[in-house]
Design a protein around this nucleic acid. Structure first.
Lengths: 206, 206
DNA sequence: CAATTTTACCCCCTAAAGGGGGTTTCTATC
DNA sequence: GATAGAAACCCCCTTTAGGGGGTAAAATTG
């Protein structure tokens, strides 16, 4: 019993956390030593729990799981983070992995993938569930990656600011913003601002 | 045992369906007689299962739960549909209820709300979980409702078509499209097309 | 049947976006 | 030290969107 993997689940969907708890308990591979339904709850207990593996949802009510992942790894680098989300967007996966996650599962994955993931990351390996593994290996034209500046601009464009307003805000020439806008249209293959905003939201680029 | 409520779950998140199955089994109120992970799976077995209550996710991989709800109620009006989703958007809730759903739960609801919901809809009542109940009672300025034509236009605008292109497509004058566009901006309080598209997607208006 | 909403249409004019072509500088990376 | 990418800048010109003002026939709904 003492060599069981200690797991903490951080997800606001209570039904799902209960399902996971049962699923993990049945396996005799790991034991759920704690559950948090928000980032705040997670922070207040994580130091006490000291889990081996943390199952982390990307959509928390109070905080972005992407940011939380980064901060958790900075303070507790020994805890292995296994992302568990509904997103199958390249940008989200890449950001999570860049922020120190050890693995990535989508919520409609099979139960055995959850257990395989926990086992793998606890052993120090990188684990991606099947669907995400395929996604990350796809030709890069379809997996769009923007520079931080481009993401910033895309966010401001999505908020409806004009080139002039953006220029005033971040102290750049409107002509520069225009250049970025053109480049974003080209990079994402968008016809105009409407499509650009749609892609930005759907592909979780902002 | 024979008076237990027969429940079928339609949701592609396998972990969640397993969690729900356990939760319902423990209650002795209802029994899960079937689970489907897609709309197709649901259709192929629903006639055989004949459940009292159907827990239906809005995001299915192969079909919109909103449409599925409507079609299911047309063919099996005696089955009570309880929507179970992550969305807390007015438009989605209203569309589901208009399409014959008897209740609406959000996935981060408490376990007891799921059981209360099943019990209520099986008894022929309308059931909304607490958060959704509050949402539906909010002042109507915040709960935007578009006409079918406006939704159609909003969709085409989001796809990046210009007024001229939309006019050609649905055989209307570009000036008419312009009028709709202005009205949508006014109705949603959007500054320009970028914000309009953002709101359309975020509030699930399209 | 009166009231309201939806759908469809038109004018004028200005602001903003989009398509095309460029340049320079800095900073990684090889 | 060459190469590549990111970041910042500028010109021309055309198309599209947005702000202001309207009208009027259908369709719903009380």
């Amino acid at each position: 019993m003492s060599n069981m993997i200690k797991v903490v689940i951080v997800d606001d969907h209570k039904i799902l956390t209960e399902g996971l708890r049962g699923l993990i308990a049945e396996s005799a591979l790991a034991t759920v030593i704690g559950v948090a339904h928000s980032a705040a709850e997670c922070w207040s207990s994580i130091g006490f729990w000291k889990p081996d593996v943390l199952l982390l949802d990307v959509n928390l009510p109070d905080r972005s799981g992407v940011d939380l992942c980064k901060e958790l790894k900075e303070r507790f680098p020994e805890i292995k983070i296994l992302a568990l989300t509904t997103h199958n967007e390249y940008t989200i996966v890449r950001q999570m992995m860049d922020n120190g996650a050890s693995g990535y599962l989508i919520k409609n994955a099979m139960a055995d993938e959850v257990l395989a993931g926990i086992k793998a990351v606890a052993a120090g390996e990188i684990f991606l569930c099947h669907e995400i593994d395929l996604l990350m290996k796809r030709p890069s034209e379809k997996n769009i990656w923007l520079t931080p500046r481009e993401r910033e601009l895309l966010k401001l464009i999505s908020e409806g600011l004009t080139n002039g307003e953006i220029g005033d805000k971040i102290f750049l020439s409107p002509e520069t913003i225009k250049g970025y806008r053109k480049n974003l249209l080209l990079k994402l293959g968008a016809k105009n601002t409407a499509v650009l905003v749609k892609m930005a939201i759907e592909q979780k680029l902002i």
